[in-house]
Simulated scan of single mutants.
Amino acid sequence: MGLSPALAADPDVVNCALAPRHESVRTAREFTKLTLNRWGLGGLFDDIALVASELVTNALRHALASASVPEQRSSPWGRRGTALDAAFNDCSSPLIRLSLVRRVPQVVCAVSDPSSNGPVAREADWVAESGRGLHLVDSFSHSWGWHPVAAGKVVWATFELPEAVQQPLSPPGNDGRRY
């Protein structure tokens, strides 16, 4: 897991470059927990971590698997010619990035990936092992969507901050009374 230089420039905007591996879902959850605790927003962890996990899983499952690259040596699963294979051969450039942005009145969770294909919510099969991710994103976030970018897309979800966090704090020594 790595933090981008944006952390130093703006503590309310943090990024985590994720390797194209299934373990990146766990890394995304750990990064989310660390960030939300640093911001004093640990109470939002369950919802935001679930959505971050789903978005990273979708990027791994759909975006990387659909991007084709020249044939290379086989991945451990025996598939050849996918972006996931290229990642096993060269992890020098992360293909997925998780970003968390805190701006009153909300937190934005965004995952970028190299595919220009937008996410498609399909009819949920409640018995199947997969296929409900975007329904979960829709259920646990305030809103969500996606935008194309120069090198793929960004899928984002917003979360409302608790009312107490949205209120500006009085300057030290000022109890709000006028003299």
Rank of each mutant, 00 (worst) to 15 (best):
A67I: 15
H142D: 00
V107A: 00
T82C: 01
T82A: 03
L41T: 05
L84T: 15
V14R: 15
V127A: 15
V127I: 15
T82S: 13
A150N: 13
P94A: 12
A110E: 11
A83E: 13
D12T: 13
C91L: 13
L55M: 14
F159M: 03
G42I: 08
R29Q: 12
A124V: 12
D125Q: 13
G173V: 06
V120E: 15
E23G: 05
W146I: 07
V14P: 09
E71W: 01
R73I: 08
W146A: 11
L98Y: 05
G2D: 04
V155M: 10
H62W: 08
R29N: 03
G81Y: 03
V108T: 14
G78H: 07
H147M: 00
P119T: 08
A86F: 11
I96D: 06
R103N: 10
F45M: 04
A8E: 10
L136I: 07
A164G: 10
T32R: 05
H22G: 07
I96K: 02
S75R: 12
V104K: 01
W156Y: 14
V155P: 04
P20L: 10
R61F: 00
R178T: 15
P76H: 09
A151H: 11
N89R: 15
Y179H: 13
V155I: 13
C91M: 15
A67G: 08
E163L: 06
G118K: 05
L100S: 04
P94I: 03
T27C: 02
W77I: 08
G81P: 06
E129A: 06
G131F: 01
V69A: 05
R80Q: 09
A128F: 09
P76N: 07
P114L: 08
V137D: 03
A110N: 02
N37S: 09
W126R: 09
R122D: 00
D113E: 12
G152M: 04
S112Y: 07
R178Q: 15
P148F: 05
R122I: 01
A65M: 12
D85W: 03
P114R: 04
G173D: 05
T57D: 11
H22E: 14
A63R: 08
L34H: 12
G43V: 08
A164C: 04
K153S: 14
A59T: 04
P5W: 12
R122M: 00
Q166P: 01
E54Q: 03
L44G: 01
V120G: 02
S170P: 14
